[in-house]
Amino acid sequence: MQNSGKRDIFIKMVTREEIQKLAELSRIEVGEDEVEKLRKDIGGILEYVDKIKSAPVSVDKEGDKPALRNVFREDGEPHESGKFKDVLLAEAPETEDGFVKVKKIL
């Protein structure tokens, strides 16, 4: 952006290994040729969002919890078993005997 030197620092911060690690965590195969572009793009994005570090909030301030809360419902009245089985399984790439089929895990 306006300060290419600063951006370079951020791009250097994101190593090739780090991109590979993130890709692994995200379950996305990333080719060797793509790593360099991702380093640049993600470095640029991290440089931009780094602006929040100067925001006047402290990360460990007490009583600063978000005002949102989860709304749960009571368990109960399950639908009859198998009611949606066919329509849902119809979308699965591979099925067998009414189950989703995947490769051996172990």
Partner: peptide, 12 residues
């Protein structure tokens, strides 16, 4: 793909 990786980064 980019946003998924950025998401994984900021949550790691």
């Amino acid at each position: 793909r980019r946003r998924i990786l950025v998401g994984a980064y900021v949550l790691s």
